[in-house]
C-alpha cells in the first residue's frame, strides 16, 4: 500500500515528500477530529460516574 502511494505521488522526490506529509497530516486530522471523538464514547475506560 505504502509502496503504491509512494509511486503514484507526483513531483519527483520533493513532491513525494510534500505529498506524503500532506497525506499524513490529513489522515491524522481525520482521526483526531472525527474518528476518535466518535469512537471514544463506546470505549469503557472513560466511565467516571457511579450509576
Amino acid at each position: 500500500m505504502y509502496t503504491w502511494i509512494w509511486r503514484v505521488l507526483p513531483g519527483g522526490l520533493p513532491g513525494k515528500l510534500v505529498g506524503s506529509l500532506v497525506l499524513i497530516a490529513g489522515v491524522s486530522a481525520l482521526l483526531l477530529f472525527i474518528v476518535f471523538p466518535w469512537v471514544e464514547p463506546m470505549l469503557p475506560f472513560n466511565d467516571i460516574t457511579v450509576e
Binding site: 469503557p44 472513560n46 466511565d47 467516571i48
Partner: peptide, 13 residues
C-alpha cells in the same frame, strides 16, 4: 467528588 480508579481504568471509583 467521584472519578475513576485506578488511573487509566474504569474498574473502580
Amino acid at each position: 467528588l467521584t472519578t475513576c480508579h485506578p488511573k487509566f481504568s474504569a474498574e473502580q471509583r
